[in-house]
Amino acid sequence: MTSRHYLPQHDRSVALWLIACAVVIFGMILLGGVTRLTGSGLSMVEWRPLMGIIPPLSEAEWQAVFDKYRQFPEYQQINRGMSLDGFKVIFMYEYLHRVLGRLIGVLFFVPLLVFALRGMIRPGMLPRLLLLFVLGGCQGLLGWYMVQSGLVDRPSVSQYRLAAHLGLAVAIYGFMLWVILDLWRHPQRPAPSNDYRSGLGVGAVALVALVYLMILSGALVAGTDAGFAYSTWPKMGPTFVPEGLYAMEPAWLAAFEDVTTIQFNHRLFAYLLAALLVGFAVVVLQRETQPRIRWAALGVVAALTLQLVLGISTLLLHVPVPLAAAHQGGAVLLLSSTIFLAHTLLRRASAHA
């Protein structure tokens, strides 16, 4: 069905649709960060996949939703005494976050169906697009699974579930970006497999994986509020290596649950990753002559510099919401630039094949 009417120029149309989806997913990741930073994620205590798109429309409906919220730990332990007007503010952040998730599902599925029925999808590409759709559905389920962890005993979600939720969102975004790049460049020819160029491509893919792990590390920081533990840089308090590292029993658990250890590890990971990215960019600039590849390497350095400035500023200013959200967006931007570099190295023009 997908090959009967397929023409190579259809790739651009499909790619433009996916670009629109990726932009909305990027916005979804930012909004999710703001929802977390403003303490709004537990304001909706029910998961209504279909009817949940309709917000409270009357004062009585608002009061009913507020009364349900007051039965849960966040209100009882943190927001006791909150007014209905105050509740409306945090509710709307989470409401918009969930509605945007549903919008992404519609934005993806309807054009996918149209493109498939018209045979405009490149042969072999449909399974990848269907996988993206399935992963999107899993993301919605994982989001509610995460919220549930904050509705039981403690008024905060599990940092493990938060990391899984953010990690899947970023994985969907990164996978979609790779598909977009494949479609945009029409890579119908095999990539070269000779000399150092293959090694650079594999190295770039490894760096993509490290940036992704760095994002997961940041999710642990967010999930435990470890960013508030030390607001100094480059030292953590009076020393570079703070006291109390890995003080939990067993010691390895501190990497996931102790705020001092989590922030220290996140900083060290950032230093290591920065050195690797800069070093790799230098190697690429020394060995490559193609302008596209050189600009891709410089783009990684630029995104890295921005992310480091945002991260340090977020710490020093004690995690203001706009800067912290920008830091999360900067992480996705850094991942995007690294994916672009990896894709460019692996999918060369035929002149180098």
Rank of each mutant, 00 (worst) to 15 (best):
A247F: 10
P56I: 11
S43E: 08
L308C: 08
V284T: 03
Y196S: 13
T35L: 07
F269W: 13
L316H: 02
L323P: 02
L142W: 10
L57I: 06
A275I: 12
F115K: 01
R292T: 09
V241D: 03
H97Q: 03
R80N: 09
L16G: 12
E46V: 05
G105H: 05
A251E: 09
V283R: 15
M176K: 03
I29E: 06
I29G: 06
L135I: 01
A275K: 08
L132C: 08
I104H: 03
G86Q: 11
H97F: 12
I121P: 00
A255M: 14
L129T: 00
S198C: 15
P8F: 08
I312K: 08
A229V: 14
Q148A: 14
A353T: 06
A351N: 11
W295P: 04
P192L: 09
A204M: 05
G143L: 07
Y160N: 06
L285D: 03
R80T: 14
A274E: 04
Y160P: 00
V110F: 09
Y230L: 02
F72G: 01
H97A: 10
F26S: 07
A247K: 15
V211Y: 07
I104V: 14
V65H: 15
L16A: 13
T314L: 11
L346F: 05
L276D: 07
A270S: 13
R102Y: 08
T305C: 10
W178S: 09
S350V: 13
S3W: 14
I312T: 00
Q63D: 08
C138P: 02
M236C: 02
V89Y: 14
V147H: 05
E249N: 14
T261A: 11
A15Y: 05
A116S: 13
L276Y: 09
G244P: 04
D258I: 15
P56F: 10
I172G: 00
Q76A: 12
L96A: 12
R122H: 02
